[in-house]
């Protein structure tokens, strides 16, 4: 199974090779807050944001089209994680860590006389 944390920009997932973990892998791709590129079996590519999956279909907003598209998974050869994760480093925990270290730095700074 591919965990969300393992989805890094540049990695490619071959759907045929995943087997029983397909559902969980697709769920991780839906969770990923960046664009992906679908490499289709007819040789074409489709880049966009995947927001929904079912056992048979994948739904995405293509980068260049106003309307969403639904594709049969049978049409998809592999999925390339092509865009950066827009949520990376932006969690509340990340923010708390940053603020905490800032406060510590202020406390540690010498008081100007």
């Amino acid at each position: 199974m591919i965990a969300l944390s393992e989805l890094v920009q540049g990695s490619e997932i071959n759907l045929a090779a995943i087997g029983e973990e397909l559902g969980k892998t697709l769920a991780a791709i839906v969770d990923y807050r960046g664009d992906v590129t679908l490499n289709l079996k007819d040789g074409s590519q489709l880049a966009g944001f995947v927001y929904n999956c079912s056992p048979k279909t994948i739904e995405l907003y293509p980068q260049t089209s106003p309307a969403p598209i639904s594709l049969s998974l049978d049409q998809v050869e592999s999925i390339l994680i092509s865009g950066s994760d827009t949520a990376k480093g932006k969690s509340w925990e990340d923010w708390q860590r940053k603020k905490s270290s800032e406060r510590e730095a202020i406390k540690a700074a010498p008081i100007a006389s």
Binding site: G34, F49, P66, T86
Partner: peptide, 18 residues
């Protein structure tokens, strides 16, 4: 705004424009 911890706005630019 880009408030810390807000999970609603982290999307690619073309999604944010929709």
């Amino acid at each position: 705004l880009a408030c810390a911890g807000c999970g609603k706005i982290q999307y690619p630019e073309h999604v944010l424009k929709r």
